[in-house]
Design a protein around this nucleic acid. Structure first.
Lengths: 138, 138
DNA sequence: TAGCAGATTGATAATGATTATCATTATTAG
DNA sequence: CTAATAATGATAATCATTATCAATCTGCTA
């Protein structure tokens, strides 16, 4: 059990908090390297897991290729582009009733700690890109 | 564009539909091998992607280590154990309003196709396991 | 029906993310 | 200060997935 953060862990936490685009572990590694050049990948992975376990950052299930991290630890929802895999924070909360959550958790037999709504669809860029392809092919 | 499913694809689809525990691609491969021994991993991956693209199965973002597939293509929600990574289908729907969804999608700038609610917490097994650890350590 | 163009397949190598190993270094207790 | 212990990072190993490519199958034409 580690309570205080050393310089490496501080740097990792800083990077994750400062980046608003859900960096992967390797991206965090590259960024942290600039300020702590001697750090290795293994330590970055170790620190990320440890920070996530302490609730200081959030580990997002990998939607496309690699696991991504989020400095926003307040509960929030996501939108995921089914074409390019982009994972966006929703700026608004999708409201749902406590009662619905509680009964669903009970039905599944789990002790509910948190929840997330995921919206799937096409982001603006992909929508435009696909329309162009259609018009060329069609 | 392929419309008809050949014997390999049929077998893969059968396996995914028959298994009620979100198999990984490798698990599907092992199961399909029993009925089509000459099939290779590459084909299984190809077929899984193709079936998912045709909407015949659903590709679940990898919650723990590997990508998992679901024969249930009707929209449904999931519960995820934060301790062991288990991914469970919710037997009931977590109801939320069309209006809330639509406005959230608009705020994120995506064209909404589907959505999913994810409940995070401890499954029964992990709850018990962790209680035991506590009582031993405490 | 034979022969061929193109698609499909599967064995295998390659890739990319993550984890394990382990010698070295830093930290702490005595 | 020294011994014990924990933390670190370089590197190898692992695991899922993808790319490559020769072999095979498909439908089609002559």
């Amino acid at each position: 059990m580690k309570e205080t953060l050393n310089a490496n862990a501080q740097a990792v936490l800083e990077v994750v908090r400062r980046s608003h685009n859900h960096p992967t572990a390797l991206e965090v590694y590259e960024a942290v390297r600039k300020v702590r050049p001697r750090i290795g990948v293994a330590s970055v992975y170790r620190i990320l897991h440890s920070l996530a376990q302490q609730g200081l950052i959030r580990e997002l299930g990998r939607s496309d290729e690699a696991c991504r991290y989020d400095g926003h630890i307040e509960r929030h929802d996501h939108a995921i582009c089914t074409a390019c895999g982009a994972l966006l924070d929703l700026p608004v909360e999708v409201r749902l009733s406590e009662e619905a959550l509680r009964s669903a958790a009970q039905a599944a037999g789990i002790e509910l700690h948190s929840h997330e709504v995921r919206l799937y669809g096409l982001c603006t860029a992909c929508r435009q890109r696909l329309q162009q392809v259609e018009s060329v092919e069609g």
